[in-house]
Nucleic acid binder design. Structure first.
Length: 257
DNA sequence: ATGGCTACTCCTAGTAGA
């Protein structure tokens, strides 16, 4: 089973790329973030034509999440239980082949100490509470998406420059560790200890080609899935060429039970 | 130190991303 996560930065801008990529990779499940489109305008047809079921919740301009899947979803959830009526679209979950797949787009946080930063930390607490209340760490649980946290210094191209900054601050890293402590493993780190593995590069200043990146998109696995995880790949090819997203997809291969 | 790209929007400037 191939499960991918990709912050697509506008699904409508990225449809040609997404189509090509789906055709070449054929993941079973694709978790997308920052679709930036209201549900009425979601580009269903080209994705259906490739055989994908689409589950999504979006809003105008910002945020928005979707799950594309070769099999239909079961038990779809499109918000955190304690999300308010106007809460940003940052959460969607479904069950695929017995695996509970939770797709998240964590808040960016803007600047350490800002209101948005406080919202980010609170959002992480609510996600952890959701797992406590609704999840089973002994079950098959996969949490993936854009976490907007680089968990350790080896996930940062210049740890000195980023020290204490947004995406790298100690409270953010603690919030991420609190998720892991529920009973999840960082799939990529389980298999690849080396530095220099990034999933996001700034559009500015030729950051991608200079290797100025951060690893902020993750696939987290409960122990029963972690034991079956064969491979995790960051698809840097998808960050190259014309009109890329600023994020690369992460693809995990899970062996059949 | 300078947010130097990109995408969005009741759009040609301001906001947000990370």
């Amino acid at each position: 089973m191939l499960v991918a996560t990709w912050n697509i930065n506008s699904i409508r801008m990225r449809i040609p790329r997404l189509q090509q990529w789906l055709e070449s990779k054929r993941p079973d499940v694709v978790c997308l973030q920052e679709t930036k489109v209201v549900d009425d305008d979601f580009p269903l047809e080209p994705l259906r034509a490739l055989g994908y079921h689409c589950s999504y919740r979006g809003e105008k301009s910002y945020n928005g999440v979707a799950i594309l899947s070769l099999a239909p979803p079961a038990d779809l959830e499109t918000r955190l239980p304690d999300d308010g009526a106007n809460a940003p679209c940052r959460f969607i979950a479904g069950t695929f082949g017995g695996v509970r797949i939770i797709n998240i787009y964590a808040p960016n946080g803007s600047e350490v100490g800002s209101d948005k930063y406080a919202f980010k930390l609170e959002w992480y607490k609510r996600l952890r509470r959701y797992l406590d209340d609704r999840g089973d760490p002994q079950g098959q649980v996969l949490v993936c998406g854009d976490f907007n946290v680089a968990p350790e210094d080896r996930d940062v191209w210049d740890p000195g420059k980023w020290s204490g900054q947004i995406l790298c601050s100690a409270p953010e890293r603690n919030a991420f560790r609190e998720l892991l402590a529920w009973g999840l493993s960082d799939a990529l780190r389980m298999l690849c200890p080396e530095g220099g593995l990034y999933t996001w590069w700034d559009y500015r200043g030729g950051a991608f080609h200079r290797g100025w990146g951060l690893r902020i998109d993750h696939v987290l696995l409960s122990s029963s899935l972690a034991r079956r995880c064969l491979q995790v790949e960051i698809d840097r090819e998808a960050r190259k060429g014309e009109k890329p997203s600023d994020h690369a997809p992460v693809i995990a291969t899970i062996d059949e039970p």
